[in-house]
Amino acid sequence: MQQVFKLPDCIKKDAKFTFCPGCDHGVALRLLGDAIDECGVREDTIAALCVGCSVFLYDFYDIDCLECPHGRATAEATGIKRARPDKFVFTYQGDGDFAAIGFAESIYTATRGEKVTSICINNTTYGMTGGQMGPTTLLGQVTTTTPFGRSAELNGYPMKIAEHIALCDGTAFSARVSLDSVANIIKAKQAIKKACEVQIKGLGFGFVEILSSCPTNWKMTPQEAHRHIREKMIPVFPLGVFKDVTKG
């Protein structure tokens, strides 16, 4: 008999996630923890965190964490990495944090080719503050600030984050993955690890956008939320690797 699954060493032994039932933030944190463990950098890792439900990483991970002003995680990660190039530095941010208030910091961190890794949880809303429209809110999606559904004319279109990041010359890896099924969770893990490895190899900015559920603000059961990712989100936000400098 062999152990085929264990929780990441990165995550504190007594950690109990405080996310809502069925929230995919928990799956994303486990996958990222596994990737950091497998890269063997846990003792040398510093996280630059955000504002949003993602920030709770600092309660659960047994690593050094810095809480940054809303959206500025990639700027702070830049400073940490430049001061301590021997450290593994990552950010874990929501769509609102990474692609709305922090988009200037994010896109320039990619453009400068900073050797850091960023994970962006795209749940198409501002989860922590009660479900307002965010940069990736789908057309027609009802939120507290788009009570009649997001309208292209009034509110513009949802932003394709991973494609934007892939266009930056400093980006080494950019992918979009989803957590709606076991098969996609396995692929998500591979992408997250790749985004960590490009930093360790000094190749440039590593980025993964994760399509993730927010059952509470979507007002869905966890099962309905995963169906929503499959049927409504993936057609708008196609999964795949948009840039990988390690592949010819």
């Binding site: 008999m1 062999q2 152990q3 085929v4 264990k6 929780l7 995550i11 996310f19 928990g26 799956v27």
Partner: peptide, 20 residues
């Protein structure tokens, strides 16, 4: 089957170990 599908899906670390 020891396939880990449940453990990979659980968002709350409630499935802590799988043996095969």
């Amino acid at each position: 089957l020891g396939c880990k599908c449940c453990a990979l899906t659980c968002p709350d670390l409630a499935i802590t170990e799988v043996y095969k």
